[in-house]
């Protein structure tokens, strides 16, 4: 169970005569930052394609609200300090730019799915899509099946928060029932029932999270999440899918 709003509303008395009514720790295991009992993998995408060119992308400026940091997240990855050096074949482009996006929630709370592929990565008002609580997904239709070498995703980087159960999949099946390749999964306790993953939870930053596409040939990319350490909602600012048109 990840720490969410619903898991922290109960309270208890700490200390027989503490006389202070305060809350229980939100995580059922009481795990603190740095606890290594979660997923054992890392989020390092590796070096990419040998002999390729370095992947570059425009990064948004850093704007952080407040100073809270995620608590009770197991196996939290070290904070990202720079965009990783990752090689892709020459001629690789962002296949997702301007492409159609659908979502599991037909009535987004804030924003429209198209914001995810509009090229705007800022964290201000009106730049992000907010979906209802629970495990939700967004899906990008790349229109053609092409090899995918990297995916870079920004959920909401205006606050130091970690999103739960981030799962990134690619497939030629729009329903993601057949031929599904999972490229990233940090659902360490399988709470979203899509399989347990070994990637690490991480704190959002302006550098996004780069996922190795491994040359997977696919037309559709689907990204799941299940709330975050600040609230129960799901957010996406931008997703880039780097591939080489065939």
């Amino acid at each position: 169970m990840k720490p969410t709003k619903t898991s922290i509303v109960s309270n208890l008395i700490l200390g027989a005569a503490a006389a202070l009514m305060l809350g229980a720790c939100g995580d059922k295991d009481g795990a603190e930052d740095g606890d290594n009992t979660g997923g054992s993998g890392t989020n390092d995408p590796g070096v990419g394609t040998q002999g390729g060119v370095e992947l570059t992308t425009d990064l948004p400026k850093e704007v952080i609200e407040g100073s809270p940091k995620p608590k009770g997240i197991k196996n939290l990855a070290p904070e990202t300090k720079k965009f990783p050096k990752f090689l892709v074949p020459e001629g690789t482009v962002n296949l997702a730019k301007g492409k159609k996006v659908t979502a599991s929630d037909d009535y987004p709370i804030l924003g429209e799915p198209e914001l995810i592929t509009d090229g705007e990565k800022e964290t201000g008002e009106g730049y992000f899509l907010e979906l209802i609580e629970g495990t939700q997904w967004v899906q990008i239709d790349l229109e053609k099946s092409n090899p995918i070498y990297a995916i870079v995703m920004w959920h909401f980087h205006g606050q130091k928060r970690a999103y739960h159960d981030i799962i990134v999949q690619a497939s030629d099946d729009p329903d993601f029932k057949e031929g599904v390749t999972t490229l990233f999964n940090n659902d360490y306790d399988n709470s979203s029932k899509l399989g347990k993953g070994n990637n690490q939870p991480y704190v959002e930053s302006r550098f996004g999270q780069l996922v190795n596409g491994k040359g997977t040939k696919a037309r559709y990319v689907r990204l799941y999440s299940n709330g975050n350490s600040a609230n129960e909602m799901n957010h996406y600012i931008e997703v880039e899918v780097f591939g080489k048109p065939e």
Binding site: V63, I64, E65, G66, S67, G124, G126, Y127
Partner: peptide, 14 residues
Amino acid sequence: ALKSSQDISYNKRL
């Protein structure tokens, strides 16, 4: 911190 005191931006389409 300075990074928390920046102008609040918004999507110009809105």
